[in-house]
Amino acid sequence: MADSGMSESLFAVIDEHYGLVYRYASRLSGRQDEAEDLTQQTFLSARQHLEQLRNAGAVKSWLCTIVRNLYLRSQHQQQRWQEWCDDYHPVTTPDPKFEIDPQELQAAIDQLPEEFRTPLILFYFREFSYKEIATQLQLPMGTVMSRLSRAKTQLRTLLTSEPVAAGEPVSKAVSIG
């Protein structure tokens, strides 16, 4: 592949990456219709800024960054007034025979705060290295790793639905009542 992003046409960019873009948008938003909108907006935005892309090898990261920025601007950016405990209790890994239900998986992902959800999705997509995820999210690698570790723990807890350390809640919502 040539160095210049310009050498890769928009046609080729869509053709090669629409699957990844859609899957990422779908996992981030948790909704099919929104994922398709985000996918279309991503390529419309990519079309406008294609000339800014200097390294064709970075197309994937670049597109994922656009997806996330668009997603953050969309309705789901609003966060409920909720704080997440920092002191997660260690959870042992579920039994290997444990089956992951697709709907429960998305519901669990939806429950993660965005700053945990995004690195987790990128990590398990197996498309990017730790370093690339850190660059994409503009975070130090240590921060990405610590968020990932916490996100994984949360996800395991949510999916296995086992009470953590004698019924301690994993998250607490601040009551405003």
Binding site: A2, S4, S7, E8, S9, F11, E51
Partner: peptide, 8 residues
Amino acid sequence: AVSTTAVH
């Protein structure tokens, strides 16, 4: 402009 330098 892009399509003139395209791979395809």
